[in-house]
Structure formats: structure tokens, C-alpha cells
Design a protein around this nucleic acid. Structure first.
Lengths: 203, 203
DNA sequence: CCACTAACGGGTCTGTAGTTCCGTTAGTAT
DNA sequence: ATACTAACGGAACTACAGACCCGTTAGTGG
């Protein structure tokens, strides 16, 4: 008998699922309040009204819990817009990213996850998958823009989408400059102009 | 007598300075090896060949130590180049940032500091000051480019420099995409083209 | 509906990060 | 050169995150 599978895999039904949901929610709350270094699994258990043992058994470490939280977030995909203009699409994306980073709960959560990824390889991989998914969802709007002739053929769609997010994350995490409405518009315009100039054409 | 000043302020001479240097060096080594969450002040003390008590007394917490380390790094300013062309200057800057983030020691250190800043306000402020200084050092090359007529008048020099770094940090910390030579060149070109198109003109 | 056992949960134990105490070393002022 | 005391350092102490044990609850398959 293979026996010791991960707990929660054999009976993923009612209680197990409820516990997972409650713990992830509590972990999100705790992360948003104090950073990820002050995250105490016993505290998460208390908030989730769940036995401390359960949290240690199912997740074991802070990075593991954060990773699971992230994978849960990745599943809740937001619908992507598709206007007729690349600049408008990119601006919509920039606004979405800006709103996420500015939101007290979501923003703190992203900061915490990114911090956790610098310490733990599994979390880092989960984070990379998360962004790969998100970027992949938005890439088509660049591809249709190529077809419309808005940007040169051969433009790397993923690179354009990354270029929109990058300055916003840079402000949020590194430079600390305000993330106002202008930042989002400027990030979108910068990516748009660079793409039009052929900077992102694959060599 | 005001008495209890911070230790190290009254006699900053020989021994105190030596201890500070040894501890900061050891902290850098430890940060580069395992992430900042696995940073143990006792371990730092051991590496620095210094009493554990001293480390706890002078810094007390991981974020405080990281902050001091960062302020120490900020003082060691690298000379900035100034070719006759904005694109070349920006490319030089991009290469510098890329090399820093790719270097095993420096890269790990920056990741750790950024992670620490998400948990601790003092560290965050120190990090923001650090980037403000670095960006301020490079801003003049944009200003001379404005005078030469390479980019429109009213262009926000700081914003251009930030735009060069942002995609590189984004790759290093969030998306996990490789930081190859092309990335640096592309980051510089993107910032350059956006600036030329007037995206960074102050409104 | 019942049996079987996966998964939970309270209580207790342990390793270690961080604190405190007090004697020692070495900057600094005269 | 000497005195004064800031700052260091070893050792013993404390508190708490995380591991473990074992009895209880509730999904799941017949």
C-alpha cells in the first residue's frame, strides 16, 4: 500500500474542502494585516476556527500555505476585455493591475507572495506559473493588434503585456512612488509606443 | 543626561566601526545564501565572530539589520557614464541593473531586501530612499538629452530611468523570465522610444 | 443505513530564537 | 599615561513556534 499520500487527497469532500477554504481565507486575512514574516500558522488556525494541528499537517510551512493560496487565486480568472484598439486594451489591463496593487487586501497579499517567492523555490515556481497564466490570457489582444496592423508583425505579445505591468510593480514594491491613475495610463502608453516602434519584435 | 542613546553613537571609533563592518558583511553573506526569512541573528554573529548579544543590542531585528545594510550599500555609489546618446546611456544603465540582479551575491541581496521591505515600514522607507538616490544619479543623462532635442521638453527624467529598471526587476522577481542580454537592451530601447513619443512629458 | 477509516482537534512536549545579567575590553578625554 | 565608561561578549534563562500523540468526528462506498 502506497499509504501516506498527502492528506486531503482521498476524501476531498465536504469537511476537507470547507477547512481548506476557511484556512486559505484566514491566511489571506493574516497576510494582508501583517506581512508574511509575521505569519503564524497557529494564528491562521485560530482565525479559521480550525485545529492548529490540521494546518501544520496539511501545509506545514508558511511558503507552502502561500503557494496554495496563490494557486487558488490563479483559478479565479477575471474576464479580459477586448475593445477594438490596442491602447485601450492595454490601458484596461494597466488599470486592473493598478487596482489590484492599490487594493488594501489584494495589494498586501501580492507583496507577501512575492516576498515569500524570494525565499522559497516552490513558491517562486507557483508565482511564475501564475504570471505566465495571467500574461497568456491578455496576449491575444496584442496578436489581434498585429493582425489589424497597429503594431509590426513578429511582435512578442507576452513581452508587451509584461511591459505594461512592470512599471506598476516597480512602483509598488521598489521605488515606492505613488500608484495614481496617471501611472496606469502612462504604463499602457509606454508599452504601446515601444511596441509600435518595433522594440518587441522577436529577433 | 539624556542617557540611553542608541549604542554606537557615542564612541563610533575603532572597535564599534569594525564590528559594524564585520556584521554587515556577514549579514550580506547570510542573506545571499538563504533568504531573509531564514536569517538568524545568532548565525550572523557567529560568521562575524562577534557576540550574539552585540547583534541583538545594536540591531535587534532582521529588518533593522537589513535596513542598515541597505544604507551602507547606498553610500557606495557607482560612477555613471555619459555618452553623447540617450539610447546608449540608458543601455549602459540597463546593463548595470541586469548585472546586479544576475550576480549571485548582489542579486540575492536585492531580492532579500525587497522582501524585507514588504514586511517592515522602516526597511521600505530605506529602500525608497535608496532608489530615489540611484534614480537621481542617472536622471541628468535624460535632461541633457532634452537639451540636445532627443526627447521632447518637459520629459520627466526620473520616470524614464524608472522605466528602464522596471522590466528587469519584473523578470527577476515576478515573472521569472530569463534576464539575458536582450532583456537589458530591450528595456533601454522601450524606455527610449516611449520617451521620444512623449509618454513621459509632465502633464 | 452502516461500517470503515480519512481527516480533524485538543493537549502536551521540545528545540531554538531572542533576552537578560554581569564581568571584560578598549575607545576617548584630560 | 591614566581614568572613566561605552560597547562588547559569554552564559544562563525564557517564551513561543512547530512537532507529536491519540481520541473524536464525519466523508464515502457498500
Amino acid at each position: 500500500m502506497a499509504a501516506s499520500e498527502e492528506p486531503g487527497t482521498v476524501r476531498p469532500g465536504g469537511r476537507t474542502a470547507r477547512v481548506r477554504a476557511a484556512v486559505l481565507r484566514a491566511a489571506g486575512d493574516a497576510l494582508a494585516e501583517h506581512g508574511m514574516d509575521r505569519l503564524d500558522l497557529a494564528d491562521v488556525a485560530r482565525r479559521a476556527e480550525v485545529g492548529k494541528t490540521t494546518v501544520y499537517r496539511r501545509w506545514g510551512s508558511v511558503p507552502a500555505l502561500v503557494t496554495d493560496l496563490l494557486e487558488d487565486m490563479a483559478e479565479q480568472s477575471l474576464p479580459r476585455v477586448e475593445t477594438g484598439s490596442l491602447l485601450e486594451d492595454l490601458t484596461a489591463n494597466a488599470r486592473l493591475v493598478r487596482d489590484t496593487l492599490t487594493d488594501p487586501r489584494q495589494g498586501a497579499l501580492f507583496r507577501a507572495v512575492i516576498a515569500a517567492a524570494t525565499c522559497d523555490d516552490r513558491t517562486a515556481r507557483a508565482l511564475h506559473r501564475f504570471y505566465a497564466t495571467r500574461i497568456g490570457e491578455w496576449a491575444p489582444c496584442v496578436e489581434t493588434a498585429v493582425e489589424r496592423g497597429e503594431v509590426p508583425p513578429g511582435t512578442d505579445a507576452h513581452e508587451v503585456i509584461r511591459a505594461v505591468s512592470a512599471p506598476l510593480y516597480y512602483r509598488a514594491l521598489m521605488s515606492g512612488d505613488p500608484l495614481d491613475g496617471d501611472s496606469a495610463a502612462r504604463a499602457a502608453r509606454a508599452a504601446f509606443e515601444a511596441a509600435r516602434a518595433g522594440v518587441y519584435v522577436r529577433s
